[in-house]
Nucleic acid binder design. Structure first.
Lengths: 226, 226
DNA sequence: TGCGCCATTTTTGTTGACAATTTCGGCGAC
DNA sequence: GTCGCCGAAATTGTCAACAAAAATGGCGCA
């Protein structure tokens, strides 16, 4: 009956890949699926439209928004700037307990990559980025990043599936962790930016090839490796 | 009848200072004022809540969100990162026509400050920032910045009214213009960041004093000097 | 006189029905 | 056989009434 659980449900369906890009979202269908009134569905769709996950056209209903590769690159560029800020602020505020936590995440990342556990690595990756945002204490930046993340989950997931990718991103992640642990704000900012630059590079490199395949993602999408 | 004109009307009333922070926004009143149904008002309020201009609490209605000084600083920090990105990209893409346009804006800014035309300077300032965003071609960044701007208009306005402020910000703006005109991306990024750093400094400096006064802003608010 | 409780009023949340628009299918003309 | 047109179905947009919750004011009681 409330709009929020409906929005959460649709969001999860989109992020998990159950609802594919450009799929039409008919209000009556969603209303039945989530056992909510059409007004609630409507409000939920409006919310998701503001998050950039769905697209609405006058009298034509809502559909899952397809973010192009160019847009994904744009999103990564903004993330580069904002995550750089968060990393720098985190380096200036990190506590000893948090330093230990980051180190633990780094160790587990190393182990995951060594054992070829791509899924586990993806989860740790997601957790690392999330934790850095929290440690930074920058709620505005965190909110911006959270919204951007939702829009690019699909591309991130495709990237994480790439063969050599974890081997490239692991040292980048470790560099971020080390800089923050060392309270070195400029180094943390640069490490975060370098990491995102690398993501952009990988995205554009994987441009022509494999425009398919990414549809297999209902297992653990939303934890895509960055 | 449509939600959009209602949202636009409320937005303008908030940005112009007619609706002051923490003012309650009663749906029935708005419904009468804008000659729209309550459902339209409701949708408009939801939209504005997502923009961060109003705050809604369950069963307690909507009120104009008051952004604290700390939040305004956070917003400026994010702007520092993202406007830096836009300036850098603009430097790499600016055309000759746009270079001339930027130079013209710079000249008019100089003239406005020389003649003490604070209002005109504010408008040029708004226009410069907007134009740089456009030239950058970074739609994602532009969207992020546009939303942040709405939330901090009130603080920006208070800042623009400060006595010596235009004299400080003018050279910063000119530096941004010059770097973009010279196609010097790193310099443009640094100039934009320096400018925002300066804004943050001025914001925190003007912390204790003059928590009043800013309510006089229905003339040309929304063009507040940055 | 001051405090707490209850009825009233105001305001928000929700639902269902109705109107407007688009889309889809069949029919006829060329 | 194909194109364009017209009606029906599906879908979205809008509204007004109803229900639920919170704010308000008055009353009794200590």
């Amino acid at each position: 009956m409330n709009p929020e659980p409906v929005a959460a449900g649709i969001r999860e369906a989109i992020l998990s890949g159950e609802f594919v890009p450009n799929q039409r979202l008919v209000e009556a269908d969603l209303s039945e699926r989530f056992a909510a009134s059409r007004a609630a569905v409507r409000a939920a769709l409006a919310e998701l439209a503001h998050e950039g996950l769905v697209e609405r056209m006058q009298h034509r209903g809502a559909r899952v928004r397809a973010v192009s590769l160019a847009e994904a690159v744009e999103i990564c560029e903004v993330r580069m700037a904002v995550e750089g800020l968060c990393a720098a602020k985190a380096a200036g505020r990190v506590t000893d307990a948090e330093r230990a936590e980051l180190e633990a995440i780094g160790e587990r990342m190393r182990a995951a990559v060594a054992s070829g556990d791509v899924l586990g690595y993806s989860r740790l990756n997601e957790r690392l980025h999330h934790r850095v945002r929290e440690i930074s204490g920058q709620r505005t930046a965190a909110a911006v990043l959270e919204r951007l993340r939702g829009q690019s989950v699909r591309h991130q997931f495709r990237l994480a599936m790439q063969p050599g990718r974890p081997g490239v991103s692991l040292p980048e992640h470790l560099a971020i962790i080390e800089a923050i642990r060392a309270h070195d704000a400029p180094a943390a900012e640069e490490a975060a930016r370098a990491h995102l630059r690398s993501v952009i590079h990988a995205l554009t490199a994987a441009a022509g090839e494999a425009a398919d395949g990414a549809a297999a993602g209902d297992v653990a999408a939303g934890t895509a490796s960055i």
